[in-house]
Simulated assay, not measured.
Amino acid sequence: MTDFPPRPQPVISCRNVWKVFGPRPEAALAALRADPGARPEGHVTAVHDVSLDIMPGEMLVVMGLSGSGKSTLVRCLSRLNEITAGEILIEGQDIGKLNEAALIDLRRRKMGMVFQSFGLLPNRNALENVAFPLEMRGQPRAARIERAREMLALVGLKGREGYFPRELSGGQQQRVGIARSLAVEPDIWFLDEPFSALDPLIRREMQDEFLRLKGMLKKTIIFITHDFDEALRLADRIAIMKDGRVEQIDTPDRIVLQPATDYVARFTAEIDRARVLHVSGLAGPVAGRAIEGPALPGGHTLRDLARRLVNDSRDWIPVADGTGRVTGMLERRHALDILLGEAA
């Protein structure tokens, strides 16, 4: 009998969570449950019956247009907003039942947060800004300064430790904010549109930097954006929200190939699918086909492998995982149709 390793448990579990803003949220929620079409006057349903799990080391990107509820949902996950109904578990612990002291302790030990506004202290230099949360913990000065230096080096700001926020560019200020959130060694990292205020070139650089940190640090990350290109570039899974509801939560490949609703389909309509779709997501089972010749790396996109696909003459091409094990077969004609457009 084969013993399978235990399935990892979610870091965050969100069960039937509602957040209603207004003077009588519980009464408004009762009206909504009785009549889903109800519009309780003076109330706004920002999160509508959301359930999801976030696994260890996963990066979940939450996206949607302004007013979709994405920021409110993440603020509920960290209990910056109290939910109206439902349950949120962090590593199996119901955070709604924690008293204020226990909640503050959980945030200090487990969570890092980065928001659109950098929130740097103007009268403290970069090193002191990064060390500030450690000071709040009561950590000795020498230890917190050493840690702050390490984090600034990690985000590429070695040599800028003595600069004040006004002396740093927008991208550098954002890096200080990221370093500050990492200084407390969080297991869970919440980022609410952290790059939205940056110009396109700096934004791209910060995405590159973030992907590097993600690969090194193995954090569980919840990242909010309204930019679909950014979501596709960064996410393990994407949750698309509309009117407080999660319309679809899935891998970027599946969201592009199999949109669950018309709303999600409109999000993906203008996307260059060859730049998004990975060959592993398009590969079918081997199903007895002969495995001949070199395999394609499954983690690469069709755009990455365009030249190889055009020059290959095989009808079916093996696809391998990161260890070199063949996991499926890619139909070359289908891949070329996506890459070049279907033949007339």
Rank of each mutant, 00 (worst) to 15 (best):
K214C: 03
V176Q: 04
Q173G: 07
I202T: 15
L198R: 08
V246G: 04
Y263F: 15
R273E: 09
V184H: 01
R245N: 14
V184P: 02
D243Q: 13
V184G: 04
S196P: 10
G281P: 13
Q173L: 12
F210H: 10
I224S: 03
F210M: 15
I224G: 02
R175D: 05
V276K: 01
L191A: 15
K242E: 15
F190D: 04
F190R: 13
H278P: 00
L213V: 14
D253N: 15
A179W: 00
R275P: 05
A265N: 03
L198T: 06
A183F: 06
V279T: 01
D272F: 02
V264L: 08
A283S: 14
E185Y: 00
A179S: 02
R266G: 08
D227M: 10
A269P: 04
F223M: 00
G215I: 10
F190I: 07
D208L: 14
A283E: 06
D229T: 08
F190V: 13
I178H: 05
T225Y: 12
E270W: 08
D208P: 01
V246N: 06
A274T: 03
K242W: 10
R180I: 01
T268A: 13
L277H: 05
L213P: 14
Q173H: 11
A197I: 14
K214I: 02
P285R: 06
D199T: 07
V176H: 03
E270I: 09
A239T: 04
I222E: 02
D243Y: 07
A260H: 12
Q248L: 09
A179V: 01
K219I: 12
P194Y: 11
R203T: 00
E205F: 07
W189E: 10
V176E: 07
H226T: 01
Q173T: 04
V246R: 05
L198H: 06
R273D: 07
A235H: 11
P259M: 10
I221N: 11
T268N: 06
I249W: 08
D192S: 10
G281M: 11
P200V: 03
L277R: 06
Q248W: 11
T225F: 07
R245L: 14
A197E: 10
R266N: 13
D199G: 13
F223N: 01
V176Y: 00
L217S: 13
D272I: 00
S181W: 08
P186T: 00
I249T: 08
F195E: 02
R254W: 01
R237G: 07
A183G: 12
R245A: 15
R254P: 06
H226Q: 12
L211V: 09
T268V: 15
I249G: 02
V286Y: 13
L182R: 06
S280E: 15
Q207L: 07
K242C: 11
G177C: 02
D250G: 11
A183M: 12
A269T: 10
I222R: 10
S280N: 09
A179R: 00
R245Y: 11
A179E: 00
I202N: 10
A260K: 15
A265L: 09
D192T: 11
D250E: 14
I238K: 06
D272W: 01
V176M: 05
R212D: 01
I221F: 09
L213K: 12
G244F: 12
F210P: 09
P200H: 08
E230K: 02
